[in-house]
Every structure is written in structure tokens, then in C-alpha cells.
Design a protein around this nucleic acid. Sequence first.
DNA 1: CGTTGGCACTCGGGAATGGAGAGTGCTAAA
DNA 2: TTTAGCACTCTCCATTCCCGAGTGCCAACG
Lengths: 355, 355
Amino acid sequence: MELSQRQKRILRAVVEEYIDSAEPVGSRTVQQRAALTCSPATIRNELAELTREGYLEQPHTSAGRVPTAKGYRLYVNELMRERALTDDETEAINQKLQTRMAQLDKLIEDVGRMATELTSYPALTISAAAAVTVKRFDLIYLDQNSFIIVLLLTGDTVKNKLVHLPFSFSQNTLQRLSAVFNASFTGIGEEAVTAELIDSAERAAGDTMGLTSVIASFVIETLATAGGGANVSGEANLLKLPEFKDPDKAHRLINYLSDTANLAKLPGSTDFGDVKVLIGPENAALELKDSSVVLASYNAGDNMRGIIGVVGPTRMDYSAVAAKLSYIAGGLSKLLAGGAPPSGYGKLMIKGDDK
Amino acid sequence: MELSQRQKRILRAVVEEYIDSAEPVGSRTVQQRAALTCSPATIRNELAELTREGYLEQPHTSAGRVPTAKGYRLYVNELMRERALTDDETEAINQKLQTRMAQLDKLIEDVGRMATELTSYPALTISAAAAVTVKRFDLIYLDQNSFIIVLLLTGDTVKNKLVHLPFSFSQNTLQRLSAVFNASFTGIGEEAVTAELIDSAERAAGDTMGLTSVIASFVIETLATAGGGANVSGEANLLKLPEFKDPDKAHRLINYLSDTANLAKLPGSTDFGDVKVLIGPENAALELKDSSVVLASYNAGDNMRGIIGVVGPTRMDYSAVAAKLSYIAGGLSKLLAGGAPPSGYGKLMIKGDDK
DNA sequence: CGTTGGCACTCGGGAATGGAGAGTGCTAAA
DNA sequence: TTTAGCACTCTCCATTCCCGAGTGCCAACG
């Protein structure tokens, strides 16, 4: 059954009022908020209808109405006004993006913090590399017992490690090793670094001391960990919200979020520029069942992509949050991929989780 | 006035009971806990005396007694039984330290997380470098527009940055620059990197393109940020405690902790192996006035040192926490400084904040 | 003189009580 | 189809009341 125009206006009014007040909203409030000409009584009839259809619910007889997940879904998909960011807001975001040009890893974390500041909800970032490989090897000779391994990865991240060894080696050995690694270990993924490959590299370099395997294991470790980096910031902001006045509930959620392994499980596939909204029970994880998650993905260049998102109560201000995340993700793409902003940047496309 | 033996036993019983129960403790409970032969009435007299002396206080007339900061102080300084860690506990710590051998920065953070797990209180880590300088420069030529700066710092940390430039330069230029930097920028602190020094380096290298200042600014940035790294983990654990059932209070503290700038302000000077206990009002920061902080410092080699600590309610289990932190700090020193464990490792020395 | 039992007193916390207010559903009239 | 009116329901808040835990003091005792 399709909702009437008036029902939609009412639903929107309920959702938006509830987002602001966090309290069940009654017929009189709806009338004012939606600027409807009809009386509260009429609205009561419509509210009853919407409740019957499952878009709203009552905490108890004779309290106002609260949107259900279904109600939020409809709101996000159809009713939400696309909120344009104010000049102040875009200005603030731009400026922050500008001034935060540290190393790549830190940058992403910083942008997460920035998302927290802007939305006042906990922010999470996930950088999922499509397939990281080493672009280039350098071995820097320090003294006869130590050297530095420098790896240049796809995505132009640089990783390094200082190695001390109990035996000595020559600068020549390192040069040979470096050549061998550049020849056979570049452009391959973690799974391709096999024992055979290491063996053959060892022979090729004429390495009898096991240097090859030291380097190779660093390569494996780096490739394995370079992919997924997840990070959360601003968890404490949850405590300000009335829905988390129960410390136990807050504790469970914060705990869930602080285990980065959980974040990786969030459904991530979003087109660049789109924003994905997961409302309450749509979340797979039990701990998120009565919270909502808004995700936007960015393009990090070199086939790498990441996700930035925030977690909040189901009554979070989806339009404002979605707009901000979309803008941040777009800016981040521009910064990282260097090129043009991804399609849809500036505009806002919401992708729901319709079933 | 010196307390009698019995008074001390009573005080200890009150403190330990309160640590366990978080509730004001009455005379009968004390009698049982301290296994005293005298009756509750006698104990009441003593309790009244201790209250008069300021070691205990009553939330209201006719409630049990609660230790004051002064009471805790005495307990920590004199009454606390030095708790030996059980074999299981040392075993667990050793094993965790063993398996966590990632890069230095991550290692410290990980150990912080470990401290959280072991004590179930939020843990903080601060790595305060005495004076970081660059030990060695390397510039790796990638192509005519880009190169990698690799800095080896005191403490054997390696930092790097990938630089893309809009103009081209030769491999020779980089070699010359590298030599100049190694000659005049090694072993000096951030404050010594002056405009004059950069100018003269630029001339010495015959650099007309501003490469020198690009590298120099990375040096400054690195030296400035390499020093203080602070980190907090496990904040959510606070929410489990009855003293933080008010979300507002918890929020204030967690917020305070998550601003790493605040952590740097904690009084840090502790001898290695010692554990420093700051009880409630002894803390300088307002936000910590009714929490306690236990700190242990470790030796990170190369004149560098760090602090690892936990934050909890004033009634935290000082003996267990202090023992664990001391052991962790000792193990960390051994791991980082490579050499012998610092004096006092294994044993436990408490340094209070006596005034 | 320190210790003990007894007793009156105090105070916080939880349960019970009783409006007040907000909001609903229903009915009858416009 | 909309509106006004009305009885009903339920939460929230403040008030009251009682119970129990614990104290302080006093008088008696070894």
C-alpha cells in the first residue's frame, strides 16, 4: 500500500521531531512541525494508520509515536530532504583537510577524528586495500651488523624496519639482495611470497646467512598488515546521548567498537560518493541492533579504497550526517587519489539497504 | 600522632573491604575482615578516632566509613601488602610481551592494551624521549620527480616520507644533499634547526630548487612529534564501575583522557622500577580529582624513557595494579633497552606523593 | 582503663501513594 | 472527511512512610 502525501508529511515530521527531541512525539507537535492545516484529531487518525502499517510505534498506550526501523528506512529513502552543507560547514571541512597532511596512516585517523567533531558521533575508518604489493625495495647499510629495509608500497605508503643481526655482512651483499628482491618480489601479493620463491631468491643472491628470509618475512608481515587498518575515535560522545544513559548499554557498544576486528565485518561495498545507511536491526551485529551506522567510501588511489563512517542512535540526524560524510569522503578521495573528485562529489546519493 | 597497631589493622580492613565492595563499611564487617578478637563496639571507638584524624569519612551520619585520600595514602605507603604476582600472572605477562614484537610505536600501544586487559582499568602510555636527534639521513631516488627521505633517529626508530615534486632533479643532487645533511643535521635537536643552518646547507649542496627546505621541514616535523607520543586504551572499562554509573561523570573523564595533550601533563618523574601512585585530590587536573592514577616508568634505551599507567577509581586495588604495572614496565625495559632489567625489577617499590 | 553490651537516634533507600500532564481512541456533529 | 469533545490510560514526579544498617554514647564489667 502506498502512503498518501499527507501521511508522508506526517511521517517525516515525526522522524525529524524525534531526531531532535529523542522523545515520543504527539499529534499536536506533528501539526505544528509539519505546518498542516488539519487538526490534531485528523493527525491522530493518520498516526494510527501509520502505526498499523508498521512505520511507527508506541512505547506504551498513550504515549506519542516513535519511528520504527521501517519508518526510518522510508524516511531515508524517500522523505529525507537532501541537506546542503552550509558554507561554514564546507569551509570548516576544507580547511581541516588542508591542514592535515601528515603521513597517510595518521591522515586517515585524523579525518576520523574530524568526522567525530563534525557530527558529534563516534567515527570509524577502515582502509581496505584492494591488493597491496611492494613497488620497490631499498636496503640501507648502516654498519656491518645492521641495515634498514625500506619498502615502497602501492598507494605510495612507505614502510621500514631496522634490522640488527648477530653476525656481520657486507654492503655488497645488501646490494645484491636489493637487486634480487626488486626483480622478483615486486608487484606480487602476500600469497605469492612462497617458500620456493624465497629459496630461489636466496640462491640468486648467494646469501648463506639467512638475510633473505629476514627480509622476506618483513615483506609478508607488511603485506599482511598493510591491508586492513580500522580505527575508531570519539566513542565517549555516545555517553552524551539520552539513549545511552544506561552505562551498561554504552559499555557494550563501545567495547564492540573498540575491537577493530568487528569493524572489518561491516558491509562495505558502496560506490564512491554514495552513502550507505544501516538502520538498527539492519545491522548484522547484535551490538548494533539498536544503533545506526552511516558509511561513505573514498578512493585512496592505486585501486585502494577506504570507508569512513559514524555510529549513532537510530534517531541520528541522517541528512546532516550523510551530507557531511559524503563531503569528507569526497575530499579525501581528491586528496589521496590526487585526481578529480569521484563522481557524485558534492551531490549526495543515498544507498539504503533495501531487502 | 602515630596510629596504634590495631588502628592500622582496622584501617587496612576498611580500605580493602571498600576496594572490594565499593560500599561504606561498618564496624561488624571490619571485625570479620580483620579477624579481630574485640567486639564491634570497640571497633566503633577506633573508627571514630580514625575519622577524627582524617583517615576515614562518613558519607552521612550513620553510614559506614569510607577511606579518605589521606587514608589511602597511608594504606599505600605503609599498610599495603606487597602482592606477589601469581605464577599464572607473570606467565601471562611474559607470554604477551614475547608475542608482541611489532614496530616500536605499535608495541607500546599494544602493551597499553595489555595493561588494560590485566587490570581492567583504562591504561595510558606516554613515551617521553629525552632528546631525539637524527642519527643518519638517507635519500632514496625513485624517479626524477620523487624520492623518499629516511631518517634514523636516536632510539633506532626509523621515519620516512615520500616526496613528490613538481620539478625534476637528478640522483646526483640527492647524493650531495644526503652528504650535507649527514654532516650538519645529525645529532642536533629540533631547536638547533635554524633558518641559518638551512641556508648554509642549501649553499653547501648547491641546491637552487628548495629541496633542502623540504627535507629540513620534514626533519623539524619529525623531531617535534617524535618526542611525545601518548595513547589511551580501554576507556570503556570505566563504565563497568559503580562510581561511573553517572554517564556524565564518565564522559568527562573519558574525554579528558582521550585528549593526549592532557596526559603529557601528568607528573612523570619516577625512578625505573618504582611505581608512583596519585590518589584523588593529589592529581593536578580537576577531572582526575576523584580518580587515582598509578604510573610506572620504563627505560626505552638511548636515554629515552616512557611511562605506562592506569586510571581508576580511588578505591582501585593498588597492590595488584602496582605489582602488575611494575612487572610490565620492567619487562618492557628489558625488551627495549635490550640489556639487564632495571634495578628493582621483580621487587616492587612504591613511591607515593608525600607532601 | 580498655572493653563490652545495650539502647536511642539518624539517615538513606525502596516501596507505596497520589495527583498532574500528555496523549490516545472513540463518538457524534459539522 | 474532518473536527471537537471527552473519557481513559499511562508515565513521571514528588511526597510519604517504613525498614534496616550503622552510629554515638553510656553504664557495667574484668
